[in-house]
């Protein structure tokens, strides 16, 4: 079964290389519930991020996005803030897996550095295509495998497991 792959669109928030898990979910806020923790997401590099982000916006990173600890709150904070997809030149393995397991897609895109902050993007995960509506350019990324698109469509690994165990995703 092919999972549905809707086109995602939103404003690009562009970051540099090695955005690590301590920047995404700082240790000093890690005990707080996600709605509090998310306010600190990326504040050390961009204080206005959590305040100004709009649901559907897209985070663009460089090399090694999400490097650092295994803490899932790094991906959870982005998802809580409404990020629709993370585009990066490369992503840390655990962050990549955590993100899909929580229903947040990540697409590897070697040309991520060519996207300007604030650009309007349209992303087709299954096809691995990114269209920059601001500049009119198109970029190729690595298409997301079907079984990971199914995680995204189900809302993450837990609803997906629920479907496998009980025949339907959890409500």
């Amino acid at each position: 079964m092919n999972a549905a792959t809707p086109t995602l669109s939103g404003r690009a928030w562009v970051f540099g290389d090695r955005i690590d898990t301590d920047l995404l979910s700082p240790g000093y806020a890690i005990r707080k519930p996600i709605e509090e923790l998310a306010k600190h997401c990326l504040e050390a590099v961009r204080p206005e991020f959590a305040r100004d982000i709009v649901r559907g916006d897209i985070v663009v990173g460089g090399e090694g996005f999400g490097i650092g600890s295994s803490r899932e709150q790094a991906a959870q904070a982005l998802r809580y803030l409404g990020v629709s997809v993370v585009l990066a030149k490369s992503a840390a393995r655990i962050f990549y897996r955590n993100a899909f397991n929580l229903g947040l897609p990540v697409m590897i895109m070697p040309d991520a550095g060519q996207i300007a902050d604030g650009a309007r993007l349209e992303v087709d995960l299954g096809a691995g295509l990114v269209r920059d509506a601001t500049s009119g350019r198109e970029f190729r990324g690595e298409p997301v495998p079907d079984f990971l698109l199914e995680f995204v469509a189900d809302g993450g690994l837990i609803p997906n497991l629920h479907k496998r165990l009980h025949g339907k995703p959890a409500a």
Partner: peptide
């Protein structure tokens, strides 16, 4: 031995498997 996040750990604890 590889590191995984909490949701993935739930998957392992339930199924005993991982991709």
């Amino acid at each position: 031995m590889v590191g995984i996040g909490a949701t993935e750990m739930t998957g392992v604890l339930v199924t005993g498997e991982i991709w």
